[in-house]
Amino acid sequence: MIEIEHLSRRFGATVAVDDVSFEVKPGEIVGFLGPNGAGKTTTMRVTAGLIYPHAGTVRVNGLDVLEDPVSVRRQMGYLPEDTPLYDDMPVIDFLRFIGSIRGIRRADLSRKVSEMVEVCSLGNMAYKDIGELSRGYRQRVGLAQALIHDPPVLILDEPTSGLDPTQIVEIRRLVRDIGRQKAILFSTHILDEAQKTSDRIVVISGGRIVAEGSADTLARQVHGRDIYQVEFSGDLPALKDKLAHLLEVATEKEAEGGWAHISFASKTNDDVSADIFDAAVAVGGRLRRLEKQAATLEEVFLELTRGGEEEAQA
């Protein structure tokens, strides 16, 4: 598992990561979500031991990345951003190279390599040079490379960027399948992806963690405000008055035929649809539409990351 505590990393005068703490438990897939330049890649590079932290600690299976970087890397599979690979090597040779550096014994090497070719569906590309492969296949070679030694910890930096929808679904399925016994941290700037693939989401913005939790709790925690779309005809001021303790009016406009279209924003997390209905009946009016709209994760994300970006620009 991965434990990151109070991690900070600067590049020159720019603070890329600022006091970041979170952990990834075994068997857990954590989506690391944030806009481009939020500090995702920096955090992951520190965790993989590629750059050193300026403050804080990162431990992988209890080993400090600064004290024992080689042991840490032995337990970790890492897919770097943009999948850099040796373009002049055939897929098979490349995987054999990685495998033997990873310490897989000669006797097991061929078996392991063909296993990876199968798992990552690289069958008909196995003897081609990596430079000739399409984006999707490259990504799979990158994953095969990270998985060949069956590591307990996986770090994937934007594993689905630049892929088409079918490929994205495949890679997602692959990550879910292998993720049952592993601790996986993967980054993305696409919300939908974090939501669909991960057990938990960590949102980073401007180098700081701004929220953490499952997709549902995130939506609630930040927003807590459901929107109710109501169309009402009757004594509108009386209705608003009656609901004032539960809702506030967000927008209001006249529709034709005496119907008013009102958007209420709730002040609580409870479902107040029934209260709206009761209030409408109590003031002697009629309802023809009553619809609850939950805050989408999209809105949550925008809200969460807005602060960070402004800070970064300041």
Binding site: L50, V70, R74, P80, D82, P84, I98, R102, G103, Q145
Partner: peptide
């Protein structure tokens, strides 16, 4: 090409 990132992620 960035392959040093890959290389130094190995043990």
């Amino acid at each position: 090409t960035g392959t040093n990132e890959l290389l130094f992620s190995l043990p």
